[in-house]
Design a protein around this nucleic acid. Structure first.
Lengths: 214, 214
DNA sequence: CACAAAATGTAACTTAGGTAACACAAAACA
DNA sequence: TGTTTTGTGTTACCTAAGTTACATTTTGTG
């Protein structure tokens, strides 16, 4: 599939034809692979990413050491964080890392403001994105404030399985510990407990989710 | 001051004169007092509140019992949560409670979409609001994920002092415990420790912040 | 004033989760 | 093939924070 077709395909049904054409004309398609840092904390953002395929994880970092996964972004989404940065010319407050390989359409920031006045569907999309991101942040807050680590862990595994389209999660205990801002020993301990409850199966460097194979 | 003047006063410098006139014509001023529930979880929002005076606290609730203060809103601000609700016709995910007495301008939702296409300053305001709210949620996440309760408590006291424009906080330990999703005993213990460190002074039903009297 | 309600102090105990230390097995690699 | 490196399991211990229980004091209020 060429660039034109990919973009048509992704945004058909979301935007009016005219806007899709504008996007196709303005966008530059950029492939990425697992682990790529797409947005770094403290950097200004000059082009807005629209996710075509793949998944991206949004991380928050403590001022001295800690790190925390906020949420995943999937196909057709964009990062409202980025929207805010573009609109306000602010530095990024978050880091975006590719969870797996995929493709983003990069659109120059100045088109955004233009489309805001011009296309109702674009405004709706922007609001929808904001709303989704808001809810994901709220969800992150709920997890942190109201849930214990074992629940957060299980939840994390399910989310990771979902965005990777598999029930096998290829991550080490150490990696999971980073994303949940915990320690490897604690994660190993809780994983073992989950295994004993029959909810997961542990292998070296990967974890199988039992039941509900997404 | 009459309605016209209050609105002129609050938004001069933020919006163009024409938009301010539209706001003044469309808005209904509503006074509120401490403890009033301005927005309830699960309710639809038909009019958008713009805060003229006073402070509002935004709370998140756990599905079974817990509660947590997300952030305070002050003069000239609006609740991005509400913006999202209005734009998307969604139920509110948060509860808004008056921290003290004040005044909001209520604007019918349909004007919002209209102004989005019409006024650049309105678009900028909406983005700015979103951005602020985003950062407050991120801040809330930082506190939850990376700070201990004693730091969160001190931080909370300072925020509460700031929005109330005083260094004396008129809250009971129980109330504070609710807002931090903790228990009264823990809060009393930590407050006592902070008092021993000379950072605060405890009285019945109020707490004095030492130094940096806002 | 007497009594109830509200606010706080404090002790004793439990638990989730963090930390340090070390053993061991699978993988990578020279 | 032998030797690191990486990933995991496990023990022992520590601390922040939650829980229960009860005492004390202040503040209404009939």
């Amino acid at each position: 599939m060429n660039q034109e077709e990919l973009i048509q395909d992704t945004f058909r049904g979301i935007f009016e034809a005219e806007l899709i054409n504008e996007i196709a004309a303005a966008a530059r398609l950029v492939p990425f692979k697992e682990g790529d840092v797409l947005i770094e904390i403290g950097r200004y953002i000059k082009t807005m990413p629209l996710l075509i395929t793949g998944a991206i994880k949004i991380m928050r970092e403590d001022f001295d050491e800690g790190e925390l996964l906020l949420y995943f972004i999937e196909k057709g989404d964009t990062c409202a964080m980025t929207l805010a940065c573009c609109a306000g010319d602010k530095k990024s407050e978050i880091r975006a890392i590719a969870e797996n390989s995929g493709l983003v359409a990069m659109v120059p920031v100045n088109r955004m403001e233009e489309w805001m006045g011009k296309y109702k569907s674009w405004r709706a999309f922007v609001f929808e994105s904001y709303n989704n991101r808001f809810n994901e942040l709220l969800s992150a807050i709920d997890h942190l404030a109201f849930m214990h680590m074992d629940q957060r862990l299980l939840n994390y595994l399910r989310e990771a399985a979902k965005v990777n389209g598999t029930h096998v999660i290829n991550k080490t205990h150490q990696e999971i510990a980073y994303e949940l801002n915990s320690s490897r020993v604690v994660i190993s301990r809780l994983l073992k407990a989950l295994e004993n409850e029959g909810k997961i199966k542990l292998n070296r460097s990967n974890i199988e989710l039992s039941g509900s194979p997404t």
